[in-house]
Design a protein around this nucleic acid. Sequence first.
RNA 1: GCGGUCGUAGCUUAGCUGGUUAAAGCGCCGCCCUGUCACGGCGGAGACCGAGGGUUCAAGUCCCUUCGACCGCGCCA
Length: 449
Amino acid sequence: MQDRTMIGELAKKAGESVTIKGWVDVRRDQGKLVFFDFRDMSGTVQGVVLPGDESLMETAKSVRNEFVVSIEGIVNKRPEKNVQEGKVNGDIELEIKGIEILAETKDIPFELDAELNLDTYLDYLPYTLRSKRARAIFKVQAEIVRAYRAYLNSEGFTEFQAPKLIGDDAEGSGEVFEVPYFYGKTAHLATSPQLYKQIMVGALERVFSIGIVFRAEKHSTTRHLNEYTSMDVEMGFIKDHTDVMEVETKLLAFIADHLKETCAAEFTLLNAEVPAVPTTIPRMKLREAQALIFNETGKDSREEPDLEPADERWLCEWAKKEHGSDFVFVTHYPVSKRPMYTYEDPNDLGFTNGFDLLFRGVEITTGGQRRHDYQNLVDGIKMKGLDPEKFSYYLQAFKYGIPPHGGWGMGLERLTAKFLNLPNLKEATLFPRDINRIDTRLSETQPEE
RNA sequence: GCGGUCGUAGCUUAGCUGGUUAAAGCGCCGCCCUGUCACGGCGGAGACCGAGGGUUCAAGUCCCUUCGACCGCGCCA
């Protein structure tokens, strides 16, 4: 590594001899001349083998796409007529003096930037993740996480990790994966860090967690996975759920600004636009949303406890048209529809201080104010037909005093997919798990593991 | 789990109301090419049409079963 020059640094090294290491992005064999585009983590550059050195030429002709190589060469300014406008390193090229093949490739199934069916793309992830498109997506995702963390840190939130192996299906909602545990016990994979983050409010007031959660639902849609990254927040001493919504709005604005600064090229490549986050995101009660939909479209779902996906898409289009917002908050879902810990609005009985945040047609967040009074929470548990005794561990936090609090859970993959207008959530997930896809071939090829 | 659509070379697809050697682009292999940059030109290999059964003189094309994929729904982030 000592004498390796990164491709992104070459422009500063005109006239110098350098060694670069990377992949062959593409080879263009012209007979007496062989051109290459080389790629490393910092960029791409063209290299050319000129006539003269026969053994070098022979090696050059044997090299194929995706070979991993170490290249010695001289950085040359390109003659005026060969400059590629608007292309990175389009004004320089590497005159190749030596090629060392570090790794060969075999039976490449298709070109990296070929248009693929999703199924093929996913079956070849170890290869397809090298594509420009995939690299751009996951760069953006990493920057979302970085910004999320940076903003919350700056607001005094403390990051923590919640356990993924838990004894009971504590929330009592959704399908849960079972895992054999010691001494005949059964453990479960966490569907959410919810109860732990509430406990953590008692310890640190403001907390957040970014971690994998598991859902055993046999869903098959473009917006569901059986394993996804939940970005959770919980904060104490709130007035009500609107405090939480305000923090989330500022956080999203911060993320959007950060993406504009750090990922402009990626958004261009993916033909997407960073959304403007309004200072105040439009908000309405579920009943208001349903009335609006009824009045505008005639579709009557006013008796339903929730919005259907089609309603959510419609509402987002409405918010975009009427308020120029890609986001819309829907609040006050019925108590019957929300988990036992959700705070009932004392001024609107039967409905909760809970909210969903819709972004470009999809729910990216569920949040709200929680029940913080011990007895009130016990009542909530009983109302759901659950046994408070089973929650005694969690209930300690409330028995021993916890402030009014609230928070949210946000799906990282959904957020990424919507920022980038990706049609399927699986494209925003490195190694997605669905009903059938769980990388069994990983272990079949490595039996010793 | 239910509903819809689909399954043809390594990849992406075309194959009309069933008709006999299954087509193209990209990739791959070979030859040619001194300025290409998704290089170009010529040639070549590569498909028992997801699997099983059925109807028919004849099935990639119609029917049934099965497996798989994608999309939608329920559920949710």
